[in-house]
Design a protein around this nucleic acid. Structure first.
Length: 459
RNA sequence: GUCCCCAUCGUCUAGCCCGGUCAGGACGCCUCCCUUUCACGGAGAGAACCGGGGUUCGAAUCCCCGUGGGGACGCCA
């Protein structure tokens, strides 16, 4: 059997959004599952809307997601060039084939593709004008996801604009032929276009590829499919917010596909092993950022320490200039690491880290007045504070266990509970009532900082 | 308006192809437990087969019709 060749063919006319990412992902998965080839092709025939900047968004997003391409810009391949703007000669050659077959005609300066069949005029309600319909035979699409779909293409359509540039339907088909694409996996929004493509394949005497139209991703609130302007639509936003690409990829896999059992969080290698076209759903899926956040957290919690710190470091580095960013940047590398690892099991995302850890890096952190009121209303916090200051002067700060033992001992001697010390100590050293365990807090902050903050707070 | 696709908890979904288990899991929500704050974690509750016909002893599952949702109808891709 011929080797599977799939392609992802984005147009650099907008941002790279979640729907495009999933289309790319499903193509990539299918290529990896079958041992086939994943081609990246840039559909930049619309000169009005293209820009180099958008091209980089595509490359960056795919790379970040780990969707490496086997052929395409940057890596080459035997069927290039891989940007449509550089394939004019190929299109001309195939246009000649259509012309020679008598399947084209010129009108209003543009070149139309001629369908086979009887012609008659009819008034089109939607476009409010009379159009020429063709009594064509239906195109049969054997869709790997949807089954047999019939659709009749009944109007000639433009394949070359009056400015001489070929349009999407034509170049898409020509490229799929010349790049030997065996499976076209794309969004369901293209299903209606497929009859045009089938007509072109036939007219060019080329075999029609296998089709697989995947369901669309609907916006989480309101009607319609997700578009680049919707909340949470852009891949670069997840990247910027410190989401883990493996979590996003895992989440995206589950939008329209499942392994056939209850498993959700699974390594990409396992997904590759199990992924197949018949397993893809037929119905559209609504995007749910809460579930994505949950998936991200699950990955975050088990991220190896080195990678977690690396992610945190990168996130801090991109932070807009400010007190926390500056202080963290100046912080000792091992201290930064300890602070981040202490916070890893506590935060729900990398993006929470700066706010969550701010007091580790500066001395002028705010004291939450509401928390202060609550804590100071408890049983003799001033005495507890004084006792803690004494403890901080002499206790062993080297391990959590040592700190815990010291505080417990203190509590026992003064007829108080661990909690009586915990709350006031936390308030004094961090200004809040949330954070890592008090023992971890003491250990990482270190004796000097803890003592200084306790004394200052007591004053 | 025409054409195409789809239809199980609020959401993602299993089950459907090859009719017969209290329709299963996950997210979210709520309750409880754990606890040194906050999270994490654990336990539990609540929550669905769009409607109507048919076929059948029996339909979430097969067929038809509605309805609903989505998409396409550009010299955009």
């Amino acid at each position: 059997m011929a080797k599977v060749r799939v392609r992802f063919a984005p147009s650099p006319t907008g941002f790279f959004h979640i729907g495009s990412a999933r289309t790319a992902l499903f193509n990539w998965l299918y290529a990896r599952h079958t041992g086939g080839v994943f081609v990246l092709r840039i559909e930049d025939t619309d000169k009005e809307r293209n820009s180099e900047q958008f091209l980089n968004v595509i490359y960056d997003s795919l790379t970040w997601l780990g969707l490496n391409w086997d052929e395409g810009p940057g890596v080459g391949g035997d069927f290039g060039p891989y940007r449509q703007s550089e394939r004019g000669l190929v299109y001309r050659e195939y246009l000649e084939k259509l012309k020679a077959a008598g399947r084209t005609y010129e009108k209003d300066g543009a070149i139309f593709f001629r369908l086979l069949g009887e012609r008659h005029e009819v008034y089109d309600e939607h476009r409010k004008k009379t159009v020429t319909k063709v009594g064509n035979t239906p195109a049969v699409i054997d869709d790997r996801i949807r089954g047999r779909v019939e659709r009749t293409e009944d109007e000639d359509f433009v394949i070359v604009r009056s400015d001489g540039n070929p349009v999407f339907h034509f170049v898409n088909v020509v490229d799929d032929i010349t790049m030997r694409i065996t499976h076209v996996i794309r969004g369901e929004d293209h299903l209606s276009n497929t009859s045009k493509h089938v007509e072109l394949f036939k007219a060019l005497g080329a075999p029609v590829p296998e089709y697989a139209h995947i369901p669309l991703i609907l916006k989480q609130n309101g009607p319609g499919k997700m578009s680049k302007r919707d909340q949470g639509a852009l891949i670069e936003e997840y990247q910027r917010r410190g989401f883990l690409p493996e979590a996003l990829v895992n989440f995206l896999c589950l939008l329209g596909w499942n392994p056939g059992d209850d498993r959700e969080k699974m390594p990409i290698a396992e997904i590759i092993r199990l992924f197949d076209l018949p397993g893809v759903n037929q119905s559209n899926a609504r995007f749910d950022e809460k579930k994505l956040a949950h998936m991200n957290l699950a990955y975050l919690l088990e991220l190896p320490p080195d990678r977690f710190v690396e992610q945190a470091r990168a996130f801090f580095a991109r932070l807009p200039a400010g007190a926390t960013a500056a202080a963290a940047a100046k912080a000792d590398e091992s201290y930064f690491r300890e602070v981040m690892l202490l916070s890893q099991p506590k935060v729900k995302g990398i993006e929470e880290l700066p706010a969550y850890t701010a007091y580790f890096f500066c001395e002028d952190f705010p004291i939450d007045p509401k928390v202060r009121e609550k804590v100071m209303a408890k049983d003799d916090p001033k005495a507890r504070l004084a006792e803690l200051i004494e403890l901080a002067k002499s206790a062993d700060f080297s391990t959590d266990a040592a700190i815990e033992a010291a505080i417990k001992d203190l509590a026992a001697r003064n007829g108080a509970g661990f909690g009586d010390y915990q709350a006031v100590a936390r308030l004094a050293v961090s200004g809040t009532n949330v954070g890592p365990s008090i023992t971890g807090l003491f250990r990482v902050l270190g004796r000097e900082r803890v003592l200084r903050r306790l004394v200052r707070f007591a004053a």
